[in-house]
Design a protein around this nucleic acid. Structure first.
Length: 508
RNA sequence: GGCCCGUUCGUCUAGGGGUUAGGACGCAAGAUUUUCAUUCUUGUAACACGGGUUCGAUUCCCGUACGGGCUACCA
């Protein structure tokens, strides 16, 4: 049987990188096994549904190249792929459970249950709607057939609950965790169909995994406990021969402090936790990795190692490497802390090792964001000049803004230290020299300037810092001669001239 | 509180009954460089604790501690 896996997010807001990693593992496993990767939208919570969230999920996956083989925009034979469009399917199965006595109607109002819950908490325990107390609660187990019919007919709202049998040991073999087992006495009679007629996650999930012929459920550890209920459901439905294999992934934890990574941690710690930016009320409320200047490959590479490790020591992995080496068995068991420094390191590696052409669109977009229009040749030159020192795409502008605009601030301290009585004459001769250089290329510029220095006994320490300040305002930056070549003959001369003027006026 | 899961350098992790416990990020030092960065070299630092089992345990078992998840008509 061929492998079919699904990524099943809920469209309740932006999807953070924990979800992305789950999608990635599903994707890698599907590709590795020659299987099918399905995107299913779990929109069964009408109250928390956020418009735009589904599009966000699709866009994120697309940016990262994790394209589903089947989804609502690219349906296969197992649709619909949105749970809100599958209501009748769940209903059919729920009715089947009712008639076989494996589920029942419950009329208890949420407020009533809240009271019971509070009461139990007060005694230090927990309220469990189950075998021990279902006889004394307001459900179809305790009323006559006639009463049930009349209550249903009057339109009284109800939920449908799974009838969990006591003293049952439920165990299964999790691919990452090994054998896990539960006692049904600790399990409540989970709601399967809510009062609004929508299924709960548990119901929809099991039915869909079955009807979409999912072979492996790869999901976060937060689902480990409820797997017991899911197993019970498969059995109650007589689907015990179609139970998929489970792999529960360790969670991604906050970089410091306790708990799993959450939405707000991005702002709190100053880095993105979302793949792409999320907008609320028309403005960006959470910055994404894309907007922060990350390459999708780099993000994926960072994420894949948060909980999984290949057999060797190689950490830079292309998507094809990942697919070739991926296995569920090598997924770790313990939670992984998010480490932004390492994410940046990966991005730097990818920027440095990407062919210049591959960076062209991102860098051009970054520049035009700042109102800078360059020819393609100029962008290519810029990338080659700068890429070794950039960790995010924004650095192609941020670190070298002086290339595109007049210098605002000169490094005064260094300038005053280096500028002597001889500097004006020295700089003037350099302008003359620059004007004469042909072809105006870095190597030629370097050769000419160096021989000029030798002939005139100019030491590097006297010239280079001043030249650099004249051209860039600072004392740090990429190769001086390449910078001169990039700026061009006119601009270089004019900048040196400008500095001479400033210093001359200052001295008068 | 109850149930389930976990615990190797600060972080991500490899390993596994006898190893100098390996790699990566970070950090530090040195080299290279006209500067800063890159790069290279070196260094730094870990088997949570207590009992077993064993000739021997970081590795297996049991406890404890700590961490995580779940405990909703949320997913």
């Amino acid at each position: 049987m061929s492998v079919r896996v699904r990524f099943a997010p809920s469209p309740t807001g932006a999807l953070h990188i924990g979800g992305i990693r789950t999608a990635l593992y599903n994707f890698l496993f599907a590709k590795k096994m020659g299987g099918t990767f399905i995107l299913r939208i779990e929109d069964t919570d009408r109250g928390r549904h956020v418009s735009g969230a589904e599009a966000y999920i699709t866009d994120s996956l697309e940016w990262l190249g994790l394209t589903p083989n089947e989804s609502s925009t690219n349906p296969g034979a197992f649709g619909p792929y949105r749970q809100s469009e599958r209501l009748d399917i769940y209903r059919t199965y729920a009715d089947r459970l009712i008639s076989s006595g494996r589920a029942y109607y419950a009329f208890d109002k949420p407020e009533q249950l809240d009271v019971l819950r509070k009461e139990a908490e007060g005694k230090g325990g927990a309220f469990l709607y189950g075998a021990l107390n279902r006889d004394s609660l307001d459900n179809s187990l305790n009323i006559t057939e006639d009463e049930l019919h009349s209550r249903l007919e009057t339109g009284e709202t109800y939920t449908i609950r799974l009838k969990v049998m006591p003293d049952d040991i439920i165990s299964f073999e999790d691919i990452v965790r090994g054998e896990v087992s539960f006692n049904s006495n600790d399990l409540d009679d989970k709601i399967l169909i809510k009062a609004d007629g929508f299924p709960t996650y548990h119901m929809a999930n099991v039915i869909d995994d079955y009807s979409m012929q999912i072979t492996h459920v790869i999901r976060g550890e937060e689902w480990l406990s409820s797997t017991a209920h899911h197993l019970l459901l498969y059995h109650a439905l007589g689907l015990e021969n179609s139970i998929p294999r489970f792999a529960h992934l360790p969670l991604i934890l906050k970089p410091s402090g306790n708990g799993k990574l959450s939405k707000r941690d991005g702002q709190k710690f100053g880095f993105p936790v979302f793949p792409i930016s999320w907008y609320e009320d028309g403005k960006e409320s959470f910055e994404g990795f894309r907007e922060a200047g990350f390459l999708p490959q780099a993000l994926l590479n960072f994420l894949v190692l948060l909980g999984w490790h290949p057999e060797g020591d190689q950490e830079i992995l292309t998507i094809d490497n990942m697919i070739a080496q991926f296995s569920l068995e090598r997924i770790g068991k313990s939670g992984a802390r998010f480490d932004y420094d390492k994410a940046k390191w990966f991005n730097h590696q990818y920027i440095v090792h990407s062919p210049t052409d591959a960076l062209l669109p991102e860098v051009s977009a970054e520049l035009s964001k700042h109102g800078i229009q360059l020819t393609q040749k100029q962008v290519v030159d810029l990338i080659e000049l700068m890429k070794e020192r950039c960790t995010v795409i924004g650095d192609f502008h941020q670190q070298c803004g002086y290339l595109f605009a007049p210098i605002q601030d000169f490094d005064e301290i260094m300038l005053n230290k280096k500028w002597t009585d001889h500097s004006e004459a020295m700089m003037t001769t350099v302008i003359e020299l620059i004007d004469s250089i042909l072809p105006f290329e870095a190597s030629e510029i370097e050769a000419q300037i160096k021989s000029h220095m030798e002939m005139n006994a100019i030491s590097p320490g006297n010239l280079f810092p001043l030249l650099r300040i004249a051209l860039t305002g600072t004392t740090k930056g990429p190769d001086l001669f390449k910078t001169i070549a990039f700026l061009g003959k006119e601009e270089s001369s004019s900048r040196i001239n400008h500095l001479i003027t400033i210093k001359t006026i200052a001295n008068e």
